[in-house]
Design a protein around this nucleic acid. Sequence first.
DNA 1: CAGTGAGCGAGCTTCCGCTTGACTT
Length: 674
Amino acid sequence: MSKLIIVESPTKAKTISRFLSRDFKVESSYGHVRDLPKSKLGIDVEKDFEPAYIIPTKARKRVNELKKEAKNADEVLLATDEDREGEAIAWHLVHALDLGKSKRIAFHEITKSAIEEALKNPRDIDLNLVDAQQARRILDRLVGYELSPFLWKKVFKGLSAGRVQSVTVRLIVDREKEIQAFISQEFWSITAVLKKSKEEFEAKLSKKDGETLDKFAIKTKEESDKVLKDLEGANYIVEKVEKKEIKRAPKPPFTTSTLQQEAANRLHFSAKQTMMFAQQLYENGLITYMRTDSLNMSEESLKSAKQVVTDKFGKEYSLAAPRKFKTKTKGAQEAHEAIRPTQPKLASQDLGGQAQLEQKHIKLYDLIWKRFIACQMKEAVFDSTAVDILGNPISNGNRISQNYTFRASGSIVKFEGWMKVYKERIAENIPEGMLPKLADNDLLSLVTLIPNQHFTEPPPRYGEASLIKALEEHGIGRPSTYAPTIATIQLRNYVFKNNNKKFEPTETGITVNDLLIKHFPEIVDIQFTARMEKNLDEIAEGVKKWVPVIKKFYAPFHKNLEEKYEEVEKKNTDEKTDQVCEKCGKPMLIKHGRFGKFLACSGFPDCKNTKAVKEPPKTIGIKCPKCMEKFSEEEAGDIIVRRTKKGKIFFGCSRYPDCDFASWKNPAEENKKG
DNA sequence: CAGTGAGCGAGCTTCCGCTTGACTT
């Protein structure tokens, strides 16, 4: 009896086969094996949106191999992920491989017992779940392949729009507009430096006559001066000492999104880098699957974590019962576990021997290991103290009406708990620093009063980490798409990373975003995906059929689109410049051509003068090596980041065409490697 | 990888989500 099991990933296949007898052969599909054709819509909207699936050339070889394997097997078991995409992959496999006989199985973790359990419970493919996936796929294709050509016609060619990318651009443009519209406000704070015996500490002005002062209570220097004057000669007396014990629980283990965020914040990895290193850790059997939105952890791993905590830190740090987490992510599919070390016993220091791992792999593993171990450790406990101090102004020996209250706070760590492993900035609600021992009615002496001028700040621009966080919170995109989406919107030149690695929209990004918001508000609504997911869930549950759901969306969308083709004028994306054409004296314009921006004379077609557009100098801080051989450092060109026609990034010399140095790799990074 | 826009109007661009190589352009 020979049986063939098909999963998505070759690494998963390898792992599973270790648990099974020789009767089983485990192969992988490498993701989807059928898809809509790339070159055309591939959907017959007249015939109930019938999709024309094809096997892409990239998948052809794999399909043929699997076909052969299936023929030789007595039974085929489809063990793809238990989620919408996984179910669809199984269904596509049935059609692509012509499987007459096949069964669907699913396991929730890759352990011997879970696999044996799954083998005992085969089922049929869930066609409702498949339909939900088809609806998702078809809707995305309809939106993407009808809206993008609209942009080619009304803006310029090569642009794109889609359910995910267009909303991602919107987030960035919206934020930029908030920043532009922001009006900074002045406010003041007053800090008293006080002394008890010889110990100095700080307290912030918090109340006037018992009324809490809000942030803008003191708006100007004059108002601040008035308070200082009121306080001349005041006594400072401790009014109330409040002690509290604060407990902080650890954060859950990593998902794709949180891993990308933390690796960006702590290790300065891009989302793309993080995924590449995680993939290699996964392939080396060191971590669980890296594209996941689940917070589940196998019982086995929890047991192992407890052992590690007890061994490494002592029993007082370990939990009586494992701590479990529930996802808050909208639309989470949870086909996998959270990202965790497969062998919790292996700390990052134990990884030295593995030659194929670089420092960056080890750093990422360290982060994953610590986060996982910490989530199975006791809460951290703080003793926090908040003290109200009355500043009683005295006037001519008499108390005057106003009095002021200052507040000092501090905390000390009573028990580190999980923070012994996974350091966090204390921040959020827990003040830092120590206070001297204080008791009610203690008389304090004033060292000095410090007025501070502040200005409110605009909201920050998104970086990769905060953008991914926002996408996940709105349920936009999936673990496998966060990094590629961010790459796409930069490739299309909708947004770019500024010198601080924060996203700013380009002119094109703003133009396209405004156009979409004005004419297709539904598609670029931040809630669009969430509403779609609700419908998909109903399809998956069998409450709704997929065709009417798509029809209900498509009919008005398409009608609107046809109207907009008539109504909307072509956007003129020409940008005026201060430059004057040296041939005819007319002003020069920045135009969009096949190869991006260029300068052209506004007198066209009478004057055909063109020039390369002045590139924003995207230097990487090093000189051109080819120039350096011939010229002094003064004369040598800088290496600048440029793009090919296809948008691929390469590194060239700023003196082009005098110097033709060009490289695909970043010469600065090449130097570092030696 | 150093071009380019308009118009003839061919043939092309484009989506999201699942998964890794085969390229050293």
